[in-house]
Amino acid sequence: SVRFVHHLLKEKDSLKAKAFTEAFLRKSIKRPERFDLQNMLSHKALILGYNRPRKEKRKGTKAKGLNARQKRELKVFEIKPEHQRYELFLPLHELWRQYIIDLCSGLKPTSNPQAVQQKLLKADFHGAIITVVRSKCPSYVGTSGILVQEFKHVFKIITKEDKLKVIPKRSSVFAVEINGFVSHIYGSRFEHRASERSAKKFKVRGTIDL
């Protein structure tokens, strides 16, 4: 009868499902011979273990940067004589001016001088025109130019005469003018690299001796 045929088909599908499940368990379980698969199939729920595929470690060495000695030997920070020209750095100066104006929210005549000074202490001065106004070494006084390199203890500037000058920060006071606003910088407070100075907290002092 039709019912009998349906029963046979249903039983056949059940056997197929059972065979498939047993095969799947054998494949999924480590060392299936240690388990009673028939007993496991009698439970309603069965938790299977899952192992994430291991990621292959990339082989290769991390690129190492140059040390201080190698940089000196390769003259990484040396400005070639043909590039020691004042006019070449004027575009850098214009970029610096706009950077400072934006940093100081317009640098208006009504700006608070102390607030501006605090921002300048942490600013990047590459491109600024600086002038030595006081120094324990009289030969530095009056020297003016565009700051092209700043190191921990010295400023390197290009003068209008296309001369590269190295000015020690310590024992010198520098003047910086932006839109009529003149700020004096004590070099002893700038004896940090530009990247370190941006994160440093400066204490307010009444006077600073050269």
Rank of each mutant, 00 (worst) to 15 (best):
I101R: 08
L90H: 00
K80P: 00
P81M: 09
E94D: 12
S111H: 02
C104S: 11
K62C: 08
P91M: 08
R69G: 03
Y86A: 00
K80C: 04
R97V: 15
E87M: 10
G106L: 05
P91I: 07
Y86S: 04
H83F: 14
K62N: 10
L90P: 01
L92I: 06
I100R: 00
E87A: 11
Q98G: 09
R72Q: 14
R69I: 13
I100G: 00
R97H: 09
P91G: 06
T61I: 09
G106Y: 11
V76S: 05
Q70P: 00
L103V: 03
Y99L: 07
T61N: 08
C104D: 02
F89C: 02
G106S: 10
S111E: 14
K64C: 08
A63D: 11
F89Y: 15
L88S: 03
G65N: 10
P109L: 03
E73V: 08
P109A: 11
R85V: 13
V76D: 07
G106V: 03
L95G: 07
E78P: 00
K75Y: 10
G60D: 11
T110W: 05
K59N: 07
L92A: 12
L74F: 14
L66K: 15
H83E: 15
K71R: 14
I79M: 05
L92V: 15
K62H: 13
E82H: 06
C104E: 01
L74W: 13
K59H: 12
R72D: 15
H83P: 00
L66N: 07
L95M: 12
G106A: 08
E94M: 03
P109T: 04
G60Q: 09
E87N: 12
I79S: 01
V76L: 13
L107R: 02
R97M: 13
K75M: 15
Y99Q: 14
Y99A: 03
N67L: 07
L92F: 11
H93W: 05
D102C: 02
V76M: 09
N67W: 05
N67V: 00
K108H: 11
K59Q: 10
G106R: 04
L107M: 02
L74Q: 12
Q84F: 03
W96Q: 01
L66T: 06
L88K: 14
P109I: 01
Q84L: 05
K75D: 15
Q98W: 09
P109E: 05
T110M: 03
N67F: 08
E82M: 01
G106M: 03
K71G: 03
E87H: 13
F89A: 03
I101T: 02
D102P: 00
G60I: 13
L88F: 13
I100Q: 01
H83V: 01
P91R: 07
E78T: 12
K64Y: 11
S111M: 02
F77Q: 04
P109W: 08
E73I: 10
K59R: 13
A63E: 14
G65V: 09
K71V: 02
L74H: 08
G65T: 13
G106P: 03
I79D: 05
R69K: 12
L90V: 14
G106C: 10
E78Q: 11
N112E: 12
T61W: 14
S105Q: 15
K108R: 08
L74C: 04
A63Q: 08
K75I: 08
C104Y: 01
G106F: 03
I79C: 05
R85E: 15
K75G: 02
T110S: 14
Q70W: 09
P109G: 01
T61D: 11
L92G: 04
N67K: 04
Y86L: 02
K62S: 07
K64F: 11
D102T: 07
